[in-house]
Each structure stands twice: as structure tokens, then as C-alpha cells.
């Protein structure tokens, strides 16, 4: 096949996502035959699976110990010298969270677990810049969507079908 014809067929924007999806599908299928090799010295340590559940810990599987502002919880950082106060508020629970914790054993896996300090520690303390970027991505998406919705970039009713 002539290479000029291949380039010409690629010049149609409609074909590009299909080609991309095809290549991506081939790579993802190839992923099934890649041997899995996980590193067991993970940065964010976790307790052995089910160990906290079997002792009926309501915070399972996210209990990292510690007392807020007194005793540090078990949270590791890549660069501990950059986050000296790490672990101080790991065990913090909001008053509502404490109330829920006392009524159920499944607090840790529920949606209520988000007010806990652990997420604050990892997301906002050691990896705070990521959070800034994530929210700016969301903000940009909303700005674009609302601009397009308000200004109707193009009215297409009157356009002829191609």
C-alpha cells in the first residue's frame, strides 16, 4: 500500500480515536502476559490483610495507631525530613466520625472514613501539590464546560449535514 494513502486516511480526524483505541487495546492485551512483579517495600505501609478486621477494630483496614498531637501514627514519607510533623494527626476523627465509629464495626470501609486524619496526612501534607493540581484540573474543566454552555460555541441546527 502506498504510504501517501495511509497518511491521507490518517488526515481524517474521525479515524484518529479509532486508531488510538486499537493501539491502546493491543498494549492493554499485551499487559496480560507481562509477569507481575510488585515491589514489597511500598512507600505507604499497610497492615496484613484482615488482621484488623479479625480483632473487630472499627477503623479496619485503615487504623494506623497514634494519638492526635501526642503520639505519631505509622505513616511513612518518601522524604521524612521534608515533613517533620508527619503522623501527628493521623488518628484524628471528627466528632461525627467518633459517633459513627462507636456504633458500627464497619466504619473504616464506609464513606464516613474520609474525615479521618490519614487522608489529610497523605494527601494534603506529604503530597499537597498533587491536591492543588487535581482541583485546578477540575476547575478548568468546569470553566470550559460553563463557557461552552453559556456561549454556544456553534449553533448547529442550521448547518448542513456533511
Amino acid at each position: 500500500m502506498n504510504i501517501g494513502r495511509i497518511w491521507n486516511s490518517l488526515a481524517n480526524p474521525k479515524r484518529i480515536p479509532r486508531l488510538f483505541a486499537l493501539i491502546l487495546a493491543i498494549i492493554l492485551l499485551a499487559g496480560f502476559i507481562i509477569p507481575i512483579s510488585l515491589n514489597d517495600h511500598q512507600l505507604y505501609p499497610r497492615p496484613t490483610p484482615q488482621s484488623q478486621i479479625s480483632v473487630l477494630n472499627p477503623l479496619a483496614p485503615y487504623d494506623r495507631g497514634g494519638i492526635p498531637l501526642k503520639e505519631t501514627g505509622t505513616v511513612k514519607a518518601q522524604y521524612p525530613k521534608n515533613s517533620l510533623e508527619l503522623g501527628q494527626i493521623t488518628a484524628y476523627l471528627s466528632p461525627i466520625a467518633i459517633g459513627v465509629k462507636n456504633t458500627t464495626y464497619y466504619y473504616g470501609t464506609s464513606i464516613y472514613s474520609s474525615p479521618g486524619g490519614l487522608i489529610d496526612e497523605i494527601l494534603y501534607y506529604t503530597r499537597g501539590f498533587d491536591t492543588i493540581l487535581e482541583s485546578s484540573i477540575l476547575m478548568m474543566a468546569f470553566i470550559i464546560a460553563s463557557w461552552v454552555a453559556l456561549h454556544f460555541t456553534m449553533r448547529r441546527e442550521g448547518e448542513d449535514e456533511e
Binding site: L133, I144, V148, R156
Partner: peptide, 21 residues
């Protein structure tokens, strides 16, 4: 990867503001 995503979404915004079919 987050920076790249931000670039991607903003690029779509720049293009989608163009008034040509």
C-alpha cells in the same frame, strides 16, 4: 501526569472556543 492532564483539558478548551464547525 497531573500536569499533563491539565495541559490536555486546557487544550481541548482552547480548541472548543473556536467558532468553526
Amino acid at each position: 501526569t497531573l500536569f499533563v492532564t491539565l495541559i490536555g483539558i486546557v487544550n481541548i478548551g482552547i480548541v472548543s472556543a473556536v467558532r468553526q464547525v
